[in-house]
Simulated scan of single mutants.
Amino acid sequence: MSEFPSIMVSGLDYNRLMNLIDSVANQNLPSVETLEMELERAEVIDSDKMPANIITMNSTAVVTDSKGTERRLTLVYPRDANFDEGKISILAPVGVAILGLSVGQSINWALPNGESIKLKIQSIEFQPEAAGEFTL
């Protein structure tokens, strides 16, 4: 994981995610520190200026992994996570990995078991900002 692609995060997502980090800080979750590092390196832009090809919170995207497996994932807050429905928590390793990526970007990401996975964003089926939903 020596090289990370550039990422964009909306101001609304940034503020909500920083509040989430504060609310779970005492739980010692490794993904919280990783999420914080991702937010520190992200370009934060106004929600109404977010390009439609960026994964934001509550976006649904099609991704492929290094084994060629295609998945439809929706990036959600922990309370809305449901793996069987493809709703992936921002605090899951794959959730942190895809936040702020754009269509066509790839990232190598270390999993908790020590393995690494490469993810590529194929398409975005829904993005709240592109749909004019600025409160999701």
Rank of each mutant, 00 (worst) to 15 (best):
N108R: 01
G104F: 08
E43S: 13
E70L: 00
G100H: 00
G95C: 01
I21S: 05
L101K: 04
E33I: 06
I21P: 01
A81T: 06
E43W: 01
V94Q: 12
E115K: 09
I45P: 09
D65V: 10
P128I: 10
L73S: 11
L20P: 09
K120W: 02
S23M: 12
E40G: 11
D84M: 01
T69K: 13
E36G: 01
S123V: 02
A42G: 06
P30M: 07
G104T: 11
R16C: 11
D46W: 06
N15E: 14
L136E: 11
E36N: 10
A25Q: 10
M8T: 10
S116A: 07
A61I: 11
N26I: 11
E129V: 13
M50G: 03
P93F: 08
N108H: 02
A130W: 02
G114Q: 02
L29V: 05
I124V: 07
P78F: 00
A131G: 05
V76R: 09
F83A: 07
V62Q: 02
V94D: 12
N26A: 12
K118E: 15
I107R: 14
E129K: 11
G11W: 00
I121S: 01
I88T: 11
I98K: 09
G100V: 01
V103W: 06
E33V: 05
N26D: 13
N26F: 09
S31P: 02
D46A: 14
S106Y: 04
S23V: 07
Q27W: 00
S6L: 10
I90Q: 08
L29H: 03
S106H: 04
D80Q: 03
Q122Y: 00
A61G: 10
E70K: 03
G104W: 08
A110S: 10
D46S: 14
F126A: 05
V44K: 14
Q27E: 10
S47F: 06
K118G: 11
S123Q: 11
P30T: 09
L111F: 03
F4L: 14
I121F: 00
D22K: 14
R72A: 03
T64N: 09
A61W: 04
N58F: 15
T64R: 12
L111C: 13
G11M: 12
V103C: 09
S6C: 04
N82Q: 13
I98V: 12
A81H: 03
S47E: 15
N58M: 13
Q27H: 03
D84V: 00
N108F: 02
Q105E: 07
N53G: 06
A131C: 08
A42L: 06
A25T: 06
I21H: 02
V62Y: 00
E43I: 13
A130M: 05
I98T: 05
D13Q: 03
P128A: 07
A81P: 05
P112S: 04
L75P: 08
I88V: 15
I21Y: 00
I54S: 04
L20H: 06
T34D: 09
K49S: 15
S59M: 07
P112E: 05
T34N: 07
I88A: 05
V96E: 05
R79N: 10
V76M: 08
M50P: 08
S10A: 12
F126K: 13
D46R: 14
K49N: 14
N58Y: 15
L91K: 10
N113R: 09
P5L: 03
E125Q: 14
I54T: 14
M8V: 10
N82M: 09
R41N: 15
N108S: 02
T56W: 02
T56C: 13
L136I: 10
D13A: 13
A61T: 12
